[in-house]
Amino acid sequence: MEAFLGIDVGSVSTNLAVLDGQGRLLARQYLRTAGRPIAAVQEGMRALEAELGGAVAIAGVGTTGSARHLTGLLVGADVIKNEITAHAVAALHVEPGVRTVLEIGGQDSKIIILRDGMVIDFAMNTVCAAGTGSFLDQQAARLGVPIQEFGGLALAARHPVRIAGRCTVFAESDMIHKQQLGHSLEDIVAGLCEALVRNYLNNVGKGKEILPPVLFQGGVAANRGLVEAFARHLALPVTVPPHHDVMGAIGAALLARDLRRPGAPTAFKGWRVKDLEFKTTSFECQGCPNLCEVVQFRQEGRVLARWGSRCGKWEADSSGI
């Protein structure tokens, strides 16, 4: 059967999704990037191959996320797309009438406004990472609560405390302060959810007309406390799609299906990618005072591409980067 592979490599998680020609999900993987995007992608490929085996033939590959270019080179991608477009495409696939997408990932958060099946506006957090997955992870670890249970705790709160949510450093100080005053863990966690939602709506969502249906995507949507807080602040139902954590990958796979050159073979290198040796090395170019950090990407010792130089003199062979 013909299938399409989408890979979304972000700061915190690496997600893979395989769809059939009708856009039905055949297999999915959600992994921690853990600072090693290449290894994470290879691990995901290994798992997908084990699951699907020879049952499917990959006819197109799309990559997205902050490591989309690197991943595109790694696996051989037909489409390399930014995560805003990928998330919008996936949201429209799940809910064709969607008018608002809230997406909170590991290190960035975005809002996408759609009308009549088309993106008309979007925003991403700019100067502050407050309210993203990394911070929640960190706080869950500090409080000794597994991240999976973190959101559920908020639902048990009776009197959520007010936490300063503008900046993560101050939010943490404020949480510690409330904790030392004797507030319950549930109330503090609920207060944090409230603060994050307030911050999101005042920063990323500023000036945007948020209309239903509202989809909440990204890894953080697993946090039920946040879902409730969003629904309360917006006074709208907020839907978390079934595969909210791999929507970026689903979007990338759909883009691979829709944008591949008609009749052209896929650039996919095959499942063997999981066993190849990929290495990145870097050096500082001494050509001018910019001292650019140039990265070299090697497959089995051969340089596939270089990037990172401002003037472009090292960027040989890196098509699409």
């Binding site: 797309k81 088309m118 008309i120 979007f122 944008l259």
Partner: peptide, 25 residues
């Protein structure tokens, strides 16, 4: 992402079926 949005709008204004077809690879 902004450029994607602009291409999609242009297509829609011309009344073309979009299905992501207006985006670049």
């Amino acid at each position: 992402a902004f450029v994607d949005l602009l291409y999609a709008r242009r297509r829609a204004r011309r009344g073309e079926e979009s299905r992501n077809g207006s985006l670049s690879r």
